[in-house]
Design a protein around this nucleic acid. Structure first.
Length: 242
DNA sequence: TCATTAAATTGTT
DNA sequence: AACAATTTAATGA
């Protein structure tokens, strides 16, 4: 455990040195960028950094001062809301298009979550400084952030309900539905790239059980199982699973 | 570009 | 947890 901690600490330090300017394709995947006017967008683009993270790498750790507002360009992250002494309270997956940490950045506090890559991912970061600069002058940016906070509150309430559910099929269904959230995770579309192994880790079930649940959901017509991912065919039906 | 091989993921017991 | 089957990714001609 101590060795793993040392490795991730080193990795976190080198995150910044590995960061590079985003490509045009990566910029196109940032949902709030098009809402900005010319100057604001230019400033944001100038400040944005992207970095590749390996499986298991930690992006933020509870207690560290917030330096960036992060967004997932590609891959899958796990956000765990840990208690003071490291007991995990909730797990949430963060798929492409998801941005997080705004609450912490706004208050200039320390991170309250651990963010770990569940697979090889590409993550973008906007500095706290530029974040506040945008917050102080752009109404569309404020609207995006407000909406983001509001939707995430709903996500956490849903996550608590999911935790209480005993039926594994329903838990998988709800967790999937959460990941297909069009507002929080616009980058997902209809095909979510997630392996059954990763989903199991997120939901707290074995891969075998997830496999069973997915097959059941497929039979009910909510989803289609694909290699390395899940496609939703009926998101409303998926949300209604009891 | 295509064929071969390795790696990852899934389905099943 | 282990195994076989399937799909994708990587390699090299």
């Amino acid at each position: 455990m101590s060795r793993a901690t040392a490795e991730t600490t080193t990795a976190a330090r080198s995150l910044y040195s590995r960061a590079r300017a985003p490509s045009a394709a990566e910029l196109a995947d940032i949902p709030w960028l098009p809402t900005l006017d010319h100057d604001e967008r230019a400033a944001a683009v100038d400040d944005l950094k992207v970095v590749r993270v390996a499986t298991g790498e930690l992006l933020c750790r509870v207690g560290r001062p917030a330096t960036y507002w992060f967004g997932v360009i590609d891959g899958l992250l796990k956000m765990s809301n840990d208690s003071e002494f490291g007991v995990p309270i909730t797990f949430t997956g963060v798929p492409p298009g998801g941005w997080f940490g705004e609450g912490t950045v706004i208050k200039r506090e320390v991170y309250r979550y651990n963010i770990q890559a569940l697979r090889k991912s590409v993550v973008a970061g906007l500095s706290v400084r530029t974040f506040h600069w945008l917050l102080d002058r752009s109404i569309p940016f404020n609207r995006f952030i407000t909406n983001q906070l509001n939707e995430r509150l709903g996500q956490f309430i849903a996550a608590r309900e999911i935790d209480r559910m005993s039926d594994a099929d329903a838990r998988v269904a709800r967790s999937l539905a959460a990941l297909f959230h069009p507002v929080l995770y616009p980058g997902v579309g209809t095909l979510l790239r997630i392996t059954q192994q990763e989903l199991g880790y997120l939901v707290g079930l074995s891969r075998q059980r997830v496999n069973e649940a997915l097959k059941a959901l497929q039979c009910q017509g909510c989803i289609r199982i694909e290699y390395g991912g899940v496609r939703v065919t009926d998101i409303d039906a998926l949300r209604r699973i009891v």
